[in-house]
């Protein structure tokens, strides 16, 4: 129970989880572009090929649709593939296999099969890689029943949730913000899991609930610290999973604070925040609201190359502070 805890990075935590899963179960294989000797575009698989060999750390050709389909076929027949997209944007090339095959196979076959597949998607902006390498497309996949879609925000969570995903009998899509890869945090050694369906209250507060995903959790925590200095007590919830959605945690928080801000990097319209807002509007928390619900999401644009424009295209700490100040006016 009390495994030693060290500070390691988010990407090391992923690598450690994959190594533990591969040690424990011969059926676990890694697939992806340049995940072997290259170590993966973000060095997440690193040197795992030296340890497990190229039969289990498989470089695929640049064939996202085919590669994803091979992973689906392998999963349905007894392997446990962890498939890495080089960038989450390339999910667009593989949507057929993810949406029409992986997500629906068990259902269409009346429960005769399972698809124990894990897919990893390096996502998000902030690297200057422009419009085709910076998107946050989690809401696309969150729209598809049959998939589980998670966005771990800390090294601790990504390791535990990846191990939970490998053990899960259904397809789990993991969105990893690229700017988190180098972030360090406490991670226990050895095997542990973090549930795939539970949000986490990262900071308790009374005046406003900030529901955030992925890297926005950290921005929300930064904002909450500043707000505390102004006498505004913000509760920060790390959603962790967008399918399934942990309704109870969010509803309980809003019933306590009576104010809600959703913060996410995906494009604002028809995104994760729309779902959270609607869910609250439909719930018993609606009567408790003292102010309109606010969404802070990505701008209604592709991600631009210019670094200043790029920053302006996604919510930043001052935006969260401003929004919370506006909502909490009259609280003090």
């Amino acid at each position: 129970m009390n495994a030693p805890v060290r500070e390691i990075s988010y990407s090391q935590a992923i690598q450690e989880a994959m190594a533990i899963a591969m040690e424990a179960d011969e059926r676990v294989i890694l697939m992806g572009e340049d995940i072997g000797v290259y170590g993966g575009a973000f060095q997440v698989t690193g040197d795992l090929v030296d340890r497990f060999g190229s039969d289990r750390v498989m470089d695929t050709p640049i064939s996202e649709l085919g590669g994803a389909g091979v992973a689906v076929g392998a999963a349905v027949t007894g392997l446990r593939p962890i498939f890495e997209f080089q960038f989450s944007d390339f999910a667009a090339l593989a949507m057929e296999q993810i949406v029409n095959q992986a997500a629906k196979m068990r259902y269409m076959l009346g429960g005769a099969v399972s698809v124990p597949l894990v897919m990893r998607f390096p996502a998000g902006s902030g690297t200057g890689a422009a419009a085709q390498h910076s998107q946050s497309l989690e809401a696309w996949l969150g729209h598809v029943p049959g998939l589980k879609v998670i966005q771990p925000a800390t090294p601790h969570d990504v390791k535990g949730m990846l191990l939970a995903a490998v053990a899960d009998p259904d397809p789990v899509m993991i969105f990893e913000h690229k700017l988190l890869y180098k972030m360090k945090g406490p991670v226990p050694e050895g095997h542990y899991t973090v549930p795939l369906d539970k949000a986490e209250v990262r900071r308790e507060g009374r005046d406003v609930s900030i529901v955030a995903t992925s890297i926005m959790v950290h921005k929300a925590l930064e904002a909450a610290e500043v707000l505390a200095g102004e006498g505004i007590s913000a509760e920060v919830i790390d959603l962790r999973s967008i399918r399934p959605l942990d309704r109870e945690t969010v509803i309980a928080s809003v019933m306590k604070t009576s104010r809600l801000i959703c913060v996410y990097e995906g494009v604002k319209t028809l995104g994760v925040g729309a779902e959270i807002s609607a869910m609250i509007a439909e719930s018993e928390a609606f009567d408790y609201l003292d102010a309109p619900i606010l969404r802070l999401g990505g701008s209604e644009t592709p991600i631009p190359y210019n670094p200043e424009l790029e920053k302006a295209a996604v919510p930043q700490v001052p935006d969260i502070i401003d929004a919370a100040r506006g909502l909490a006016r009259g609280v003090r």
Binding site: A131, Y305, N306
Partner: peptide, 10 residues
Amino acid sequence: YCAGRGGSMH
């Protein structure tokens, strides 16, 4: 050429 929106890759 792309008004700063595209960069090298575009």
